[in-house]
Design a protein around this nucleic acid. Structure first.
Length: 280
DNA sequence: CACACAACCTGTCAGC
DNA sequence: TGCTGACAGGTTGTGT
């Protein structure tokens, strides 16, 4: 479920439920996520007030009053569900962390595959190892064609693989890498270092546009993506190429070009979808 | 160093 | 209906 747009959607759903509130109790039902949840996680949070929530790449960072804070990552299958006071909380088989707030609200972190993470941060959360080497936020001004080009310089790996590298740009995952390359008209197998200045410009624009659209749509993603109130995201109906092998893309269905449709290939172990006519 | 790939773990879906 | 295998949004560690 979770690339940048989904994580941002979760952050927005979490904000009203957490910000300004104190943790009454935090229960870690399983510590064995991608990394062990710190043994003192609950104790550090209990009684503390949440100041604000930010997102960095695919991570959510919760800032506590005073010092410290904590981070969450949804992995592949993580979900966060908010149950305001008075709502009935259905229990799930993979509810790993339960945050009970002083106002009676309950927030549940659920993650079947347990690729997700929960960790404590110091006062300077940016110093955390997860954020140290992370690339620019794609929706901020720091993400520029020249900056991107500099990162890709001399890279022999494919541009698709490079986009998945969180050091190159933060928050882009498999779906939006495919979608952005399609938008920019760039073939996913191109060597990353071979992009021209103009192509880097197109790609920056495309990444931004695709992510923004997805956030506006309430976080996409796959059939089972849910927002914090349990509703389905609905961007899944508007992918251009992702998971559309064999179909004609918008640009080919309109014209008279002979195109056999969207193709699927595997790059560094992940599915890539692309249109061989539009993407060069 | 840079890159490709396996591993982590569970659920779902297509095919037989 | 039930079984098996392929595959799934991410990240890290290992091996070439």
């Amino acid at each position: 479920m979770p690339e940048l747009p989904e994580v941002e959607t979760v952050r927005r759903g979490l904000e009203p439920a957490m910000a300004g509130q104190r943790f009454k109790n935090v229960t870690v039902r399983r510590h064995d996520l991608r990394f062990p949840v710190p043994a003192d996680f609950s104790n550090v949070l209990r009684g503390r007030k949440v100041q604000s929530l930010t997102r960095r790449g695919k991570y959510i960072v919760v800032h506590l009053d005073g010092e410290r804070g904590f981070g969450l990552h949804l992995g592949m299958s993580g979900r966060v569900r908010v149950f305001p006071k008075g709502t009935k909380r259905e229990k799930g088989a993979h509810d790993h962390i339960i945050f009970e707030m002083e106002n009676g609200g309950v927030i549940v972190f659920n993650d079947p595959r347990r690729f997700g993470m929960a960790f404590l941060t110091g006062d300077k959360w940016e110093d955390e190892k997860f954020f140290k080497a992370m690339g620019p936020e794609p929706l901020e001004d720091v993400f520029t064609p020249d900056g991107l080009r500099a990162k890709l310089k001399n890279k022999k790996a494919s541009i698709k693989a490079a986009l998945l590298d969180q050091c190159v740009v933060a928050g882009v995952g498999n779906i939006y890498a495919c979608e952005a390359l399609y938008d920019a008209g760039i073939h996913p197998a191109r060597a990353a270092g071979s992009l021209t200045r103009a192509e880097a410009g197109k790609l920056v624009k495309a990444v931004r546009a695709v992510l923004k659209r997805a956030i506006e749509a309430g976080g996409s993603s796959l059939r089972d993506h849910r927002t914090t109130d349990g509703n389905l995201g609905y961007f899944q109906h508007s992918f251009s190429v992702y998971d559309r092998e064999g179909a004609l893309c918008l640009s080919c269905s309109g014209g008279k070009k002979s195109c056999k449709g969207i193709r699927r290939m595997v790059q560094s172990g992940r599915s890539t979808f692309y249109c061989p006519v539009k993407q060069k």
